[in-house]
Design a protein around this nucleic acid. Structure first.
Lengths: 189, 189, 189, 189
DNA sequence: GATGAATGAGGGTTCATTCAT
DNA sequence: TATGAATGAACCCTCATTCAT
């Protein structure tokens, strides 16, 4: 059965992500992860080749969650403008745009420059966001303007995640959303 | 003489910041810092009470450098619009807005949630940026709009630093500058 | 199975006590203990949370050995006088009242003022000795005299242990025994 | 001038002994001693060749203080019995028989087995006490009995110092004195 | 004489990782 | 599969000691 070990892996990824929120990457030890999962010390490396691989899968999974939300919203979006709104709103879901989660992300991002596997995931994330934004912007703007605006929006979203991680309570999802919406192209008269 | 120990401390902060760029916070060991400074391992803790204090001072110093640049530009700024340009340009100086430096920042920021000393510095940085931006925006916009725009610009700057840290080469200082300038209030009349 | 780890813990306590005899508390490093036990350095802290806890358990164990000897002798004692003899003789067993062991005790005692856990054990030891002595003295003396004599005997025993620790070879168990016996109440006509 | 450096040495010995009372041998660092003396870090090894030599001199000095007290009392003693009282009382002077001082002694004694210099001093101390006691006991007892009693009294004094060190507050100087006096030969009718 | 800079050894402790059961 | 014993490397930090000023 693949299922049972997949379930276990899933539990461990979840536990690792929760520890990550509290302790950061360097504070997250395999022992704490095991404890958080209610398992024994040696179990983590039974399912993941190394600590690095665990983090890689955690980041991959966290990304998947985000992607799923955005995709779900995009599926219900008709117009380009709705697509844009979907992408933005999907990045500020109230249960994901929280200080602990932003801090966990931040912590993982800080490892990106020295971890090729994480870097690869990060690249995918940015590429997807850019592509999603472009699919909404292209019908509204000249390609060059669209590209610039996509970059602007993407970077602003990243910056807002960073800010919430750095200053818990500084930002509500609604405020963040409003700030990003202002960057959207003005509704042409 | 205070001078000699201040010089040494300065050297060590510099060495620590350089190691930080390469290795991140958890990869930056006192031994590497000492080696980078061409000194012995024990000397670092002769000048800094602990590794945490070293990092605190490194962050404080790095912040000071940034602040100095912005302040210098502000001193030459006459109009509100020039003030805004000064603040923005000061945050993208070509010799500071580099991938290694952004990565070092990112690494320090990732510790903020678990290091009150770093958190304090971070708070000061954000407060100063906000205040600097407001001094340029207030004459141009209603107070509420100014506040929103200041947040937008600040978060976008943070996001662009984050992006360069994550994707070296993805962004030139000029591109970054251009993206932020677009958020400035349209020149009236 | 708890057994295997208990055995290991037992070995490590023994090794630690042997190193303690040679090197004193501050000379007893975890590395030396591990070497004495024929194990690796890391294993010691696998079984004891810290060096302090190791010492605590070593003292507890050493105390237990002493207690066992006294208790065994007490079990065979009928009269109050025999009880007193049991207590005293149990404190000068030839294989325990040796210079190295006295030195190890001395070394542990020197930490008592700054180690609450050791202080607690020390308190128990003194209380037990006092109680044991009183059980022999009460039938022979008025309570106040009994208390004084118990203190005298207890302190003399301590002093003799101290002396052997300070001057190896200065004292045989028999000499020590004889010195203490003199403090017992004279056999009434 | 020899005087000035002797004064400095004296101050440092005093400082070291005070630190010793609080921190024990292994907790007594040269830096703490310097701080206690209100001097700079490097000064201690300017006056003492090493930490070991400092401790040696501290023990020597502390011994001297004790010796002075006893000698002063002996000088006023006429009869053998008065000599015995002088020796005993001199070992329980209220300002010396205090928990911190007993703890400092205890800490030094614990080093005796591994420090020949301290061992030498310790030997002198015991020899002097024995000799002092014998000078009072010889006129009162057969030589063999005198030797035994001297040992008893000496060991009891040591034991009482040990006890006060282990249990601050357990013993007043008067109580200690009374316990020892009981060992003196009964006043012959 | 006095300061404190500098060194380097060593200690306790943590942790990822490997293995045997 | 799962446990936890065992290892060894590495890190932070402390300190006695040496030197240059």
């Amino acid at each position: 059965m693949r299922a049972i070990s997949d379930i276990r892996r899933q539990e461990l990824r979840g536990a690792a992500f929760r520890v990550l929120q509290r302790e950061g990457v360097s504070g997250t030890t395999l022992e704490k992860v095991a404890a958080e999962a209610g398992a024994s010390k040696g179990i983590v490396l039974h399912y993941f080749r190394s600590k690095a691989e665990l983090f890689e899968q955690v980041m991959r999974e966290a990304n998947l969650v985000l992607k799923t939300r955005v995709t779900a919203r995009l599926a219900r979006a008709g117009s380009p403008r709705e697509r844009l709104e979907a992408v933005i709103a999907g990045n500020f879901e109230p249960d994901l745009f929280t200080a602990p989660i932003c801090q966990a992300w931040l912590s993982l991002c800080a490892e990106v420059p020295r971890d090729p596997a994480l870097a690869r995931i990060q690249r995918v994330i940015h590429a997807r966001m850019c592509s999603n934004l472009m699919s909404g912007l292209r019908p509204l703007l000249p390609v060059e303007d669209a590209r610039v605006t996509a970059l602007q929006i993407g970077a602003l979203i990243d910056g807002l995640w960073l800010r919430l991680g750095l200053s818990p309570g500084a930002l509500t999802p609604e405020q963040a959303l409003a700030l990003v919406r202002e960057l959207l192209p003005a509704r042409s008269g």
